[in-house]
Design a binder for these strands. Structure first.
Lengths: 219, 219
DNA sequence: AATTATTTTTAGGTAAATCTAAATAATTTA
DNA sequence: TAAATTATTTAGATTTACCTAAAAATAATT
């Protein structure tokens, strides 16, 4: 099933809007895609014809089985590229979205799977959203990037960004591992470093790079 | 100047066909782009209107100043992505072209420059073609990837693929450096390893990975 | 040089993805 | 529930990048 960039963007938008409730409305889609309702209706008909959607005129739309599969593939690519941009190319976590919007449409499955392996099969992207694996399965508990957590909050480390030797060494040195509880003390604007307290011991400071590699959940 | 994917493909095709002689013909372009001459004429008019080409009806076409700049930018992206795929994602040098054809159209300049830095500012892609730098300047002497050189040929090492510590250590161990002369003895199909003789000493065997990291010129 | 062959352009048409304006269905409100 | 409002669809155009077929320009050949 080969989709155009435009078709992929519709599938992705429906996927994101569908999350909580059932059907997605034409107007919601038009707003989300910065297009007009009439254009949406056209595309819904086309994608329904391709068996990607379940759509009844005037009743909104939801993804069909094949549509879900396609959506997960696009989301997987988007989030893997975001991870790559932050972890390898030193982009800030807040400047990767637009580039990933372009990269997610590169079609090679082999590329995506090799990228995934190269990155160490990360489970969460730099915004804390789960990355579907090559079978479309992803974690359900939402995690946060440590750098996004507000001061005073207590969190528990769930996973780390990559399995690189350098990162693991640094974590051991700082006594941080999966399951470690820590409290955010304060954040410094200048270099985005974060002051934390691990297991109620004296505070330490960790760099922006390290904070971005830690995924946590609220406790 | 924002170009569509199709426009970029025309600019790139003209760039490659233009290399030796002066003007590129409509038929040449049609063949190269797998399209029809009539379509080419349409696009040539459009790109001329955008001041990218110098085009006289029936006289063929060549890139203008702005067209050259755009072409170099596309070629730069294509070759950097090829380098990335081979050097980081472990693609074979012969399976990267199609994926790079897609990646070269990603527009972010910041992405390309960061990728360049991440790769260690390589001067040649995995096929030995020079990679333009961010100002569009590239090496003029054509180099070959060692893995492409036929048995019996004597070559001189010109540059290495990356500056990684692991690669440099391996090269020191094998007594290979910039300027080293070596002869290709034979190549093994099974694992693509290459038997070579360094400075007329007894032969040694180098892996596919190492051979792909070495760029050489004929002596 | 005149004819033939080739190349290139023009003219008119198609499919994808968009648009505006008008018509129709669904929902809300008085 | 009937009218008013909102949401959605239909109808008809537009733009981009293609196409085919025919006309025009250039090049090759006798």
């Amino acid at each position: 099933m080969n989709l155009t960039v435009s078709e992929e963007n519709y599938i992705k938008a429906i996927f994101h809007l569908q999350q909580a409730e059932g059907n997605v409305s034409t107007n919601q889609l038009a707003a989300s895609l910065h297009t007009k309702p009439a254009s949406v209706t056209d595309m819904l008909k086309k994608l329904t014809h391709k068996s990607l959607l379940e759509y009844e005129p005037y009743q909104g739309v939801r993804l069909g089985k094949e549509g879900k599969k396609q959506a997960l593939s696009i989301v997987r690519k988007h989030r893997l590229w975001e991870f790559f941009l932050v972890d390898k190319l030193q982009f800030g976590w807040d400047e990767v979205h637009d580039v990933a919007e372009e990269l997610e449409h590169i079609s090679s499955k082999k590329l995506v799977d090799k990228l995934d392996a190269y990155l160490g099969f990360p489970k969460f992207d730099p915004h804390g959203d789960p990355i579907p694996d090559s079978n479309g399965i992803m974690a359900t508990i939402r995690q946060f990037n440590l750098i996004d957590v507000k001061p005073k909050v207590v969190v528990e480390v769930c996973s780390v960004g990559s399995q690189s030797a350098e990162l693991l060494e640094l974590l051991r040195h700082k006594n941080i591992g999966i399951g470690t509880e820590l409290q955010i003390i304060r954040k410094f604007e200048f270099d985005h470093s974060v002051e934390i307290s691990v297991k109620n011991k004296p505070t330490i400071t960790i760099s922006q790079q390290l904070a971005q590699a830690l995924f946590v959940k609220l406790v």
